[in-house]
Design a protein around this nucleic acid. Structure first.
Lengths: 216, 216
DNA sequence: AGTTAGTGGCCGGCCAACTAGCAAATGGGC
DNA sequence: GCCCATTTGCTAGTTGGCCGGCCACTAACT
């Protein structure tokens, strides 16, 4: 009630507390993504994140409880920002094999364009290097992805785009590992040219899984 | 000269300075491998490494100059302890394809048995997570491995075990990435059962690259 | 006026590296 | 063949820096 006389113009931008809270929260997460993807996991200190977001170093703790809380939020944000769900519609009109290849290709493209995916992978790498408890969360997420991939393989076998001999779980594991391995390659050697790698990966997978071999 | 009268018995074990030096150096590297592989990269402090090796925390600095110096030594040690050179002889009597598969299979076995390989991969992960300069060294090593793999693919095409359509560099990249990706999987979820993964990986690669497509 | 967002000072802990000093070998002179 | 000055392996104390988290406080909103 009584929205203050903002006669001076709009720039005052009176925001509700929930708005401020949400805004600063988003800002901190995005700042963390920026820092991690550009300067590494170790550079993501409260000090750096706060400064990047335009706040103090204390706000992260207050908003997310602890460092771990922030990291959880970052992972959740990252995982939801590039997840396969965005491709679900596009993939539906394709054959199982082509859907699978689209997923793989899109993943590789995003690897060099999406700070979120980069951050996700770097946090994963850090969890592996430190043997941190976070690994369990990543393992669960990967299990989820493998399920998606296996479903696509099943679909492909049903519509004939993938030959019957291919085991869905095995194929899903291979595709998933290929994604992880190529991610590693690209992050180890950023100078690498992505385009030929994409073509090679996609065509190799296509050749491995495609169609009826020869009427039998 | 004049090996002091050790009349008290042998346990005195008078060692030359060079011996002591070499022994402590080896001990520190192996201690670092133990700590990293069991407790994570972050746990590898001078304190922990010195204690594990039975020395003080100061010795690492004196022996290797700095933390980075030790890490370099650890990487070198690890890389030379599991490298493909040990398989060179065994692989020579096999076809190109079987040599390739032996390499892949051996790598996966060592991943769960060799602390050195585990340490190597964890240091690699750390370098990726921190965007450290070490990445360049790893990239060079991977390039070397890719060369080995590509040579095996060429051999396989020459002896007919790999079909002609397969591009050597592309295949090498796929195999290398598969190794990295499966390593990641296994380190993220140590509870995973390695045996089926090995079988799946080997058979998938065999099916992808094997023999003349028709007439065989 | 009361609640909630956001800040800055501070503490305890940890770590890599420097330094002075101790102990174990070494080797040349006697 | 022995002895002692010198070198070299190794240690412990210390320092300076950084980081996560806590707390009292101010500013913004209701």
């Amino acid at each position: 009630m009584g929205d203050r006389m903002d006669d001076l113009g709009a720039p005052v931008a009176r925001r509700t507390q929930a708005d401020r809270r949400a805004e600063s929260g988003r800002g901190l997460v995005q700042a963390a993504v920026s820092i991690v993807s550009q300067r590494g996991v170790g550079a993501a200190t409260f000090e750096a994140i706060g400064a990047e977001a335009g706040y103090s170093r204390s706000l992260v703790t207050q908003r997310f409880g602890s460092k771990r809380g922030l990291i959880d939020a970052v992972i959740e944000h990252a995982a939801s920002s590039f997840g396969p769900q965005r491709l679900a519609e596009r993939a539906q009109s394709l054959s199982g094999l082509e859907g699978l290849l689209l997923l793989l290709d899109t993943y590789l493209i995003e690897l060099s364009t999406s700070r979120e995916l980069r951050t996700y992978f770097m946090l994963l790498s850090s969890a592996v290097a430190e043997l941190s408890e976070l690994r369990a969360a990543f393992a669960a997420e990967h299990e989820r992805v493998k399920g998606h991939l296996a479903a696509l393989v099943d679909k492909g076998r049903a519509d004939g785009s993938i030959r019957p001999g291919v085991d869905a779980d095995a194929a899903a594991l291979m595709i998933g590992s290929l994604q992880l391995g190529l991610s590693m390659q690209l992050l180890v050697d950023p100078a690498m040219d992505l385009d030929p790698i994409r073509r090679i990966a996609v065509s190799t997978v296509r050749l491995s899984f495609a169609g009826p071999p020869a009427g039998g």
